[in-house]
Structure formats: structure tokens, C-alpha cells
Nucleic acid binder design. Structure first.
Lengths: 114, 114
DNA sequence: CCTATATTTCGCCATATAACGAAATGAAAA
DNA sequence: TTTTCATTTCGTTATATGGCGAAATATAGG
């Protein structure tokens, strides 16, 4: 029960849903996500660690960056069944569409503290 | 987006999940649910109206009682796809099992303010 | 009509949550 | 080694949420 509640709480915040919908396009580092959401880096980091705690995303170190990607492994029943639902939803949401366009063009070398 | 967030928030409380898992067994009135959850009637009523707002359950007046049941109509994409997932989950949860045993035996004529 | 019962609404309180900035950490570059 | 940049951790603050009891509403039955 405890784990299930954590999973739904993770999905109960619009900024975390925006992150997941961005990661459907491609993996992103923290500062790219921060630039698109226009939130403080510490806030974004907290959202990401929460999504990682419920196995929705995986992190991978890449030099000074940390890349986050959707967890496509089958190691978590909740993620395995909920992420495909989310992928079907919000196709016409304006914020989601705008975020995804930015994902297509954002470049971490230009966007992070220049 | 707004509606989706409301849906996940509705699922983010253990007492609301318990209610949905009880309603998988059969429809129940407010005082039966109140007796099983051991919460104040006003609290249960609030949970139920929240679940109704996101189309997870339907209410039907029956004399002085109000019966709530799972919404099995196909009129809401989120309910249609999330309720079957929930039905697959928590089969071994002790609280859920205990709640469901009580659902099988509870009688509104005995349990409500006698 | 009057009372009893089921439910809902309202106001209040304690806790949870999301936001920020400052400071700490870790790795690359100078 | 020192500096720089990306990220995380920590402490604080404002708002959201879940709980209750009291009062309002609705219906059944005397």
C-alpha cells in the first residue's frame, strides 16, 4: 500500500508530469529540465529524486552532468503499467507540446549557466 | 492536465484507495464505509465526493442512504483505464483483505448508529 | 408535525508538500 | 591545485490536504 501511494503522489504534481512527458522524447540532464520548467535547480533535483525513488526514471552520470531517462526496464509493476498510460495521455496539452518542442531544440552547452 | 492531476491526487490517499478496493466487492453506503474505516462521517463524505468528482464512483440515493459504487461506465478515460489497474493491485495487502472481509459481513441496519 | 438517522457542509487545526536560496558535493577545466 | 559548473542537500516559508466536531440538510417513521 505504502509504495502504491508513493507512486500516485509522484504523479500528482504537474511539474513531475511535465518531466515525464519530456523524458518520453529523450533523456535530459537536470539543467535542461530546469531551463524548460523555469524552476530552481534544487526544486527540479528534488522532483527527479522523487521520481527515481518510485522507479519511474533512471539516472546515469555523464561527466559533470546527470542524465535522467524513463525506466523502460520491467523491474517495477507500477512503472511498467502506468508509464504507457501516461504516454497516451495529454497529447493536446499546450504546455506539454511546448515543453516537447523545447526538448527538441535545447542544447545543454548553451542553456546551462551561459 | 488539471483533470489528470486531480485523478492522481484522488488516488494518493490510502483511505481513498481502501474505499475503492471495498467498492470492488459491492456498493456501500456512507455509514458502512465509515464503520470499516473508523473515521468521522464527515471525513468519509469528503473522500467520497472527491472520488465522485473524478468519476471513479457514482452515487445513488436509496431512501435515507446514499449508495456509492464503482463507475463501470466508459464515460471517463482515466477511470476506465486506472480502475482495472487498481483491481489488479494490493491482492495481498493485509488492510485491504481485512476491509473486504468486513464488507462481506457488514449490515447497514446493524452498523449505523445502533 | 416532531423525532431519529444518514449524509453533507463549514470552519478549524495539524501535518505534508512544493517552492526558494544558501551551502555542500563532485567532476571537468584552467 | 584552484576555479568553474552541475547537481544535491538542507533549512525555511507559504500553501494544500486530511482529520475532526458542530451545524445544516434530507428522508423515514411515529
Amino acid at each position: 500500500m505504502r509504495d502504491l501511494i508513493k507512486v500516485f503522489k509522484a504523479l500528482s504534481d504537474p511539474n513531475r508530469v511535465r518531466i515525464l512527458k519530456m523524458l518520453e522524447v529523450r533523456p535530459l540532464c537536470v539543467c535542461e529540465i530546469t531551463a524548460i520548467l523555469e524552476l530552481a535547480p534544487s526544486t527540479v533535483s528534488k522532483h527527479l529524486s522523487l521520481l527515481r525513488d518510485v522507479n519511474f526514471i533512471l539516472d546515469e552520470k555523464d561527466g559533470k552532468w546527470v542524465n535522467y531517462e524513463l525506466n523502460k526496464t520491467q523491474n517495477n509493476e507500477f512503472a511498467t503499467r502506468l508509464l504507457p498510460l501516461l504516454a497516451d495521455w495529454l497529447p493536446d496539452d499546450e504546455i506539454i507540446q511546448s515543453d516537447r518542442e523545447k526538448v527538441a531544440t535545447v542544447d545543454r552547452n548553451h542553456v546551462c549557466s551561459v
